[in-house]
Design a protein around this nucleic acid. Sequence first.
DNA 1: CGGCTGAATCGAATCGATTTGAGGGACGAT
DNA 2: ATCGTCCCTCAAATCGATTCGATTCAGCCG
Lengths: 314, 314
Amino acid sequence: MLEAASALGYRGPNPLGRQLRSGRSGIVGVVVGDSLRRSFRDPVSIQVLDGLATSIEALGLGLLLVRGSDEPGADALNPLLATAAMDVAVILWGATTDSPVLTALRERGVPLVVVEGRAGEGNALVQVEDRKGMRALGEHLLALGHRRIATVTLPFDRDGRQGPADADRLTHVGYEIARRRLAGLHDAGIEPTTVYEAPASLVELGTAAGRELLARPDRPTAIAAQSDLLASGVLLAARELGLRVPQDVSVAGFDGLDLPWLAPDVLTSVHQPLQAKGELIGRAVGDLLAGEHPPTRTLDVELVVGTTTGPPPA
Amino acid sequence: MLEAASALGYRGPNPLGRQLRSGRSGIVGVVVGDSLRRSFRDPVSIQVLDGLATSIEALGLGLLLVRGSDEPGADALNPLLATAAMDVAVILWGATTDSPVLTALRERGVPLVVVEGRAGEGNALVQVEDRKGMRALGEHLLALGHRRIATVTLPFDRDGRQGPADADRLTHVGYEIARRRLAGLHDAGIEPTTVYEAPASLVELGTAAGRELLARPDRPTAIAAQSDLLASGVLLAARELGLRVPQDVSVAGFDGLDLPWLAPDVLTSVHQPLQAKGELIGRAVGDLLAGEHPPTRTLDVELVVGTTTGPPPA
DNA sequence: CGGCTGAATCGAATCGATTTGAGGGACGAT
DNA sequence: ATCGTCCCTCAAATCGATTCGATTCAGCCG
């Protein structure tokens, strides 16, 4: 009987029939940044994605990668957003509130999980205590005696700007993640000498920022970056300029990545539980599929002091 | 009319119906290694994936991530392999010929694109000229005068072994990629003093290999690693041991990654066009969907000599 | 031995888009 | 004015699994 079926060319049940009948595709769409490369270069995304994939797989679901908007400004939305079957969509790195991606998915009625963004009506939110963590980092720097503190930030918006942000720019921070981490510094009572905006979380952009900040006449005694990759770029720039860390300048990051190539230095950083974050996103996906409205989930972070921060030079 | 439809709750055409009718899900399954984290930590996979995603998107298809087998030995196959809808599957990093992943997909009748593997009947193959590239690298080292040359390899199999490989082990190289790169060295006329097998392409594993190889009494004057990440780990180990590169030891890699944190060193490496590889995979996918049998596609590589190789110490 | 209840199997309807075929209407040509 | 053809529109069949309902058979009890 079974062999008869297979002799007739039967290859096992066709998933498409099941899917149509059940109305479920068993697929979770994950919207990552502009270019896959850009988001996958980022170890942060990768670890979150790994945790997410693990928990999603346990639910018997698949993970469909979808690129977000293409070129900045172009509203040529990725057609997959409109046509691909997905039961839930996860938006990594929040997207700005006005993001066409967000509105497109909302119009389709796809339940959303937003990561590090702003809660819309009816979509789940997963985030970490950025603001608190950054505040702790700021207080650490102040306690060490630093007063001239600069910061290198994640993108404010998807317009790819790079360089010091003026007061006007600071009022237009589209991405929650950059905004919250800036606010954390402010909470600590820090008014940064310079806020340098990087267009992405990449080592080389950190280096560029570091070169510019460290060459200034009013050179900061400490630089707090909003990501470990940016911070390690700053470290490289400091080395390049012959500055000792932390004797001449202190550098700190955010994320708590394992960066073997900085050895023997250990970056002072606010550690966030990336794997757990991915798993929480998975949990939120499960909740949405079960028809429940998942609560906003916020994970704690921890300041880990390494060897790259110390008292300012006398 | 349209507003009436939307008022009734119509959310646009349901992809599932279209899919059932057309028999196409519009989804390309990409089978990555054991754990997503492990494969995504690897910049090589990421760049290939990026190229693949770009060309697949141009075809209007989506990219479904599927983890390969779980724990080594466990034949608890990822259920997605059996149940998820996919029109074509891409197997990154070849899988061994006996891979249960391969047989599972073959039984389902899913057309396959195998990357850096062995051509089965009827599946497409995309690869680079590893062997030729490694031969060129070997000849470069020989021309510099090196005679005691060790090599750090990619995994032979999915059993996670780590350390020097003996003669017996060398006859059981399951992964084509490690086998071919070894063969390339042999083609150059090199009999490595030690073949050190790493269980994955990670910086820290390269460091472990470097520590062991460079501490030996018959310390090699050159180490050729099968990946840039392994090579940069070896570099770190050399620095750690106070060895100068390339004065005391030469180090070379494979892939041609951009590794900003090695600066000012530039790793001597065999460059492979990763982005283009991903695009070729996409082309193969397109061919399979069009019902054609795609040819085996082989990309060329190029030896780029950097600052990490030089004449052996006197 | 007959009737009733329970279980098992077979068939039909459903999910939603798509495609094809048929029918009707309109226009042009004879 | 009538016939033929072409186009447009609407309805029905299809894709494949699943689910629900109905029918049938068997077993048990009265």
